[in-house]
Design a binder for these strands. Structure first.
Lengths: 157, 157
DNA sequence: TATGGTCCTTCCCATGATGGGAAGGTCAAG
DNA sequence: CTTGACCTTCCCATCATGGGAAGGACCATA
């Protein structure tokens, strides 16, 4: 089947399939004489595997390791578990960070009248000279891209 | 003061200060004859404001709006609150998403022996033909960049 | 004054995962 | 043979951030 079919059946966009091939996450496929990529059921299966791992938030690098382990029949499950646990930790750190932000913000928002007057504790806090004295102490401070929309951009927006 | 000083005093890197200027988040500064940017206490104050907003996860676009409101003495606090509440929602959606991922993963990891044998429910699940049948149903599915390290890259790594 | 070190300038590139779109080739059905 | 749907490659954009190069500016000290 062609890339479009493979994309539809796997849930990975054609664009991404080409990208994964280009970075070596999946091997180069067979091509027709005309240069069209040809995919088998097995390839689709692999792509689905990748999509799921991606949906669980694994990075492409980690997915590469997972795919290798998956295809290595003599793997040790501890290696897989190790990757998973590491990822869980990363996720939890992120969650903690985001929670800290929301809590600070909720505090601030609670005290803001939110009417037509200019007084605003939210701005006051942002402008204050000392550290954010709220619950959230910015221990873990990373950026968070809140709009990295995976998948459709036009339809889903 | 020069950009280096302003960076140090505000907690915003010189690189970022230039970037913020280039995208119009902050106005162009006065320059010395030699072309060096010159900053005042007020500028540093603004930069600190920006850093805090950034630490709370606001996007540069939102920060722009917040800065405008901050500097508009006839603002309505409701506008500020509106931005804050919107951001809180976004954060909470993200948190929900991440929690869903961790829960799925924890489930899978729990059932994985994590020893030298190849049997691995984590891989089995990723490779399974049907949808992830776990608690996490991938309702909200976005990517999450778990390593967008803000700030130092060498020292902090 | 010459030299060196530290600062500043601009410009380009990279990140990670993804989409958009253009220019052009292919294929199957009518 | 034409049309439309599909494929190809290539380049660009995102978002906020850092890295680094090439070159100029400034200052202190020998």
């Amino acid at each position: 089947m062609n890339i479009g079919q493979a994309a539809e059946r796997s849930g990975v966009s054609a664009k991404m399939i080409r990208y994964y091939e280009s970075i070596g996450l999946i091997p180069k496929t067979v091509r027709t004489e005309a240069g069209y990529r040809v995919y088998s059921e097995t390839d689709v299966h692999t792509l689905r595997f990748i999509r799921r791992a991606r949906d669980l938030g694994f990075s492409v690098e980690q997915i590469g390791e997972l795919v290798s382990l998956w295809q290595d029949r003599s793997r040790a499950s501890t290696d897989v578990k190790h990757i998973a646990l590491g990822h869980i930790e990363a996720l939890e750190r992120k969650i903690t960070e985001l929670r800290s932000m929301t809590e600070t913000l909720k505090h601030l928002a609670q005290h803001c009248h939110g009417d037509g007057r200019p007084e605003c504790p939210i701005l006051d806090e942002l402008a204050s000279e000392d550290d954010l004295h709220n619950c959230a102490k910015r221990e873990t401070k990373f950026g968070l891209p809140l709009t990295p929309q995976r998948g459709r951009t036009k339809s889903g927006a």
